[in-house]
Design a protein around this nucleic acid. Sequence first.
DNA 1: CTGAAAGCGCTTACAG
DNA 2: CTGAAAGCGCTTACAG
Lengths: 342, 342
Amino acid sequence: MSIKRKPSGRVNVTDVAKAAGVSVATVSRSFNLPHHVRDDVREKVLQTASKMGYTPNSAAKALRLQKTNVIGAIIPTLDHSIYATMVKSFQDKLAEYGYVVYVLSCGFDSNSIYDSVRLLVERGAEALLIVGDVADPDLTRYLKEYRMPVVCTYSYFDNRAFPFIGFDNYQATKQLTEYLLGLGHRNMAMLTGPMQGNDRQQARHSAFLDALKEHKSKCTHFTYESAGGYTIEFGEKTLRRIRLECPEVTAIICNSDVIAFGVLSACKKMGIDVPREMSVVGYDNLEFAEYLEPPLTTLAIPAAEMGLRSAEAIIANLKNGTEIKPLLLGTQLMIRQSSHSI
Amino acid sequence: MSIKRKPSGRVNVTDVAKAAGVSVATVSRSFNLPHHVRDDVREKVLQTASKMGYTPNSAAKALRLQKTNVIGAIIPTLDHSIYATMVKSFQDKLAEYGYVVYVLSCGFDSNSIYDSVRLLVERGAEALLIVGDVADPDLTRYLKEYRMPVVCTYSYFDNRAFPFIGFDNYQATKQLTEYLLGLGHRNMAMLTGPMQGNDRQQARHSAFLDALKEHKSKCTHFTYESAGGYTIEFGEKTLRRIRLECPEVTAIICNSDVIAFGVLSACKKMGIDVPREMSVVGYDNLEFAEYLEPPLTTLAIPAAEMGLRSAEAIIANLKNGTEIKPLLLGTQLMIRQSSHSI
DNA sequence: CTGAAAGCGCTTACAG
DNA sequence: CTGAAAGCGCTTACAG
């Protein structure tokens, strides 16, 4: 059988049907309802299709079936490894079920995700994973009207428009701060990521302030916010500022191990003994945390698990209509250095 | 005007047309050929559409226009920050032109990407970014038959099926090895990532061996391959093995700064003075490299630039049919520690 | 400037 | 078991 190709462009069902001497219906059935087609016919169709390099057109399929198998994910940035980890596990799980994930990075301000959501809706996203809360009421209404299944992640609130599958940034930081208070520290600094429209950072900061407030003794606190994301450089520079601006600080909470890396590095250069003169704690439990000198006390967050659980919830919702239930995942304080304040 | 919604599902052109009292053609034109529609009519259509929350269906659009605005990217893993950086710049550039990027992680073995490519073709990818060479001849034929614009990246070869926009791993490693030879090192080890089907690692390894071979003096060399990717742990453990198995080694090339981190960490723990007793060099110039102790000599690779240039080449090809030309990007050896062998 | 109609590629209810 | 036909939502050449 001589195979004819179109002068350009892809081979479609019609081409395969002609070449195999059957109708397009039979070609389609051979792929999607194989047991509805006589064995020898199906065999021939499949072989012909394979020989011609037929690849189904998923736009046409999506249009016809009203199902795209596309899931959207909106994250602040791929550049931060913790998001990459989460997205990877999310994606890997969904791929098992034939879904493809569109990942959009949109910065840290959750007020600016409207356009990203629109884009994903346009692309036919059947469900959305969003880092942080959906703060914009217009956006909430829009998503509700579409009956769009939405999982918010990386935070945990139980009074919001959409269910969260994440962890409690407030409680985690409270624990971290109380740990430092327990060691006797009274003058602390927190180094945060961008706070604007960022409920994770805001929750951590509130927890930090509240923990100190609740404590009877007189405490002082300082906050340094990174404009540009989570970098070693920010930690390095800020430690130097802290020594100038508030030398009484004996403990520093960094909202990322990356920042803590910079703080430790600067301490070393300035001859500040960690942890005896300065306690430094981080967030994320990145691989390097335990290899730093001294090993970094850090708050392990369930990055891969958030991706996995979110994927599972979405799959159950899409396949069986199972409601997406909020899920509070645990964090773990990895104590690797501990020293009382001097 | 009272807005009717469908009981479920999305609002489409027909709904908007009815609500605005015009034909679907006019609705479509109002969006895509606005100057072909009378001002007041267009105004009304756009307002109605907005009020109803109309979002165009890109599957239908793709089917009709035979254009998906989807680009595919096949990378080993998102977990390695250098790939995340590349993908991010690739994605950001393409987003400016209305393209959306599907990212598939497929491990390090380029022989296993056939399925990923099929999936992306099915999804209507108009062009592909592939990390490494397309080694599989079947896959090459398949892509050629589809006239699929393909950019290979992260490597550079000029005799392959598809153009590369990347850097020369062989030359870069040659330079690195010769630098160490120049310092007097004669007994070296290379710590690689997974080699199977991985032209980047293979090229680096060949360069390592060749550089030593070309050198007149008698050299010894050792290779340790990480099965599980680029981890600190691999570097840490391997340094310990090296001390046992080939204690004459005075210089170690790590094919990732992450691995070098582990080697440095182990050296510190074992009391091995870097760089006086042991030279350690890395790859990638990750942010932490200059903050390590001692600062890490490393080969900076143009991760963001690869993403950007690849995106530009693809855009030019898709918009104007401009042929995708190979582009050899530079690397830079960042010398931060240097010590002659003892 | 506007509308009716064709058609992109696919799947499936319907008829045989 | 198989085929002809309808229709998913969209855009545009064609006709007015």
